[in-house]
Amino acid sequence: MGLFNRLFGSQRPTSREVAKSRLQLVLVHDRVDLSPQKMQTLKDELISTISKYVEIDVEGMQVNLTQNGRQCRLTADIPILSARPKR
């Protein structure tokens, strides 16, 4: 199946690949005890806090938990909209 997919260019990932990505996602949340729901709350609060100081592009904002070995990292990439008032 894996070989067939590769030969004929199927986009469907193997179950091994699916397992690994599901594991990575669930583990990073397990390790810091942050559920996806809590992550959303955190993101919302970040938006409201930062918006007090600068205008941000909420659509382009990325907040992620990543891991390097057993070290977890919370990264926020928040595009700031032009500081000058557009008028």
Binding site: M1, G2, L3, T14, S15, R16, A19, L27, G69, R70
Partner: peptide, 17 residues
């Protein structure tokens, strides 16, 4: 593992570190 239907040693080590 060979046919892509089981996590490989490298995958497990990668996530557990």
């Amino acid at each position: 593992v060979h046919r892509g239907d089981m996590l490989d040693t490298a995958d497990v080590l990668d996530v557990l570190a």
